[in-house]
Design a protein around this nucleic acid. Structure first.
Lengths: 205, 205
DNA sequence: CCACATCCATACAGAGTTGAATGTAAAAAA
DNA sequence: TTTTTTACATTCAACTCTGTATGGATGTGG
């Protein structure tokens, strides 16, 4: 086989990651060999070992394609009016995140991370999930705290409790949806949850 | 090695299942060999293959030790007054389930099922999770429907929405707790969620 | 007390996977 | 153009795990 152009090489790298997503999702991470990934991409294991040190390295690269920090979601909305409307900011951030999750790549990679991989090598998916969860929960608490200071919350609800409620609800819904995404739309049902929860948590007026 | 007494044989079977829980939880299902399980139990693979057909069979046996259907939780409470107080029935059933989850064996096996195993052989953990989820959600909807007929719910909340909200919240909390159970008590925080949600969902009076 | 079934250890063959070594043709650098 | 590097394919040795076959000692039923 001949050497490829730089662009072609980058393309095979992406093809390998695509193939990994496919087979990881189908058979689970542990039970797929690098040979299967290579063949799915029309390559051999030589290509895999050229682009990645081993399976853990490939896995990390796969995850790197779908990072999504919470603050970034807020920034994307980019509406200065949201500084004075924390509950609306939460609502829009959730909408932004839920919408992005509907992109096939995001859904598939998260499904792999949560449902189709165990601890292996230097990779600890549970630690990654913990990072994501605690980061998003921390951001939620901040916004709910502002909402509390603005007297937007019911007086018997603390910001921490509100944040935990919302985060648990979305987390549970997220897990259910990842198990069978064809049954419902995560964006629709997620926003249904968010809207009702925010309505219930908000001070009556 | 000599043949053991019937009771001794049953004990080694349990010891093998205990050992499997230990190592499955530590290294994940896929990466633990039957040899490791046997050695952890002080046996060899011969014992494993005598008591179980293969790893999938052993896995099933491990799960069989912790079945917990929703209706059974209600029955355990056994209070006829609950027929007329569906919201209180839900509350107590949740408390019962959350309490049981704090038993180490239940926690560990569910952690394995949800976070430490992929699809393998004839075993599909996602299908099992789906069964559990849909069963409990169905039961919740029934009780919330009764509550709705009794005018116990806010008029803008449907039974389905209430059930989904509660189930998502508990599911999300459950996942978080399984990832790091030493950070908080599932029973306490779970009941906190349940109580606030039921309070928010109930009709004001 | 005898024969047999049971409970487990040991040994073995086979398959699958990994990582590294080596080969190689073309792209890129000189 | 020549040289070097790149981007893979191919091959090989080592390891691990599985399933099964076999053996042996001892409970257990008759």
């Amino acid at each position: 086989m001949a050497r490829r152009t730089k662009a072609e090489a980058a393309a095979t790298r992406e093809a390998l990651l695509d193939a990994a997503e496919d087979i990881f999702l189908e058979r689970g991470v542990a039970r797929t060999s690098l040979e299967q990934i290579a063949r799915q991409a029309g390559m051999t294991r030589g290509a895999v070992y050229w682009h990645f040190r081993n399976k853990a390295d490939l896995f990390r690269a796969m995850l790197d394609r779908v990072r999504m920090p919470f603050q970034e979601l807020i920034d994307e909305i980019d509406d200065p009016a949201l500084d004075d409307a924390p509950l609306e900011a939460i609502r829009l951030a959730c909408r932004q995140g839920l919408t992005r999750l509907e992109q096939p790549r995001y859904r598939r990679v998260h499904a792999i991370l949560i449902h189709h991989c165990e601890v292996f090598g230097e990779i600890d998916p549970l630690a990654m999930q913990n990072e994501i969860a605690s980061e998003s929960c921390g951001a939620l608490i901040e916004y709910f705290t502002v909402a509390c200071e603005y007297r937007l919350l019911r007086p018997d609800i603390t910001p921490e409790l509100a944040a935990r409620l919302l985060q648990s609800s979305l987390g549970g819904l997220f897990h259910d949806w990842l198990r069978n995404h064809e049954h419902f739309s995560i964006r629709e049902r997620g926003m249904e949850l968010v809207d009702t929860l925010l309505k219930l948590l908000a001070r009556e007026r």
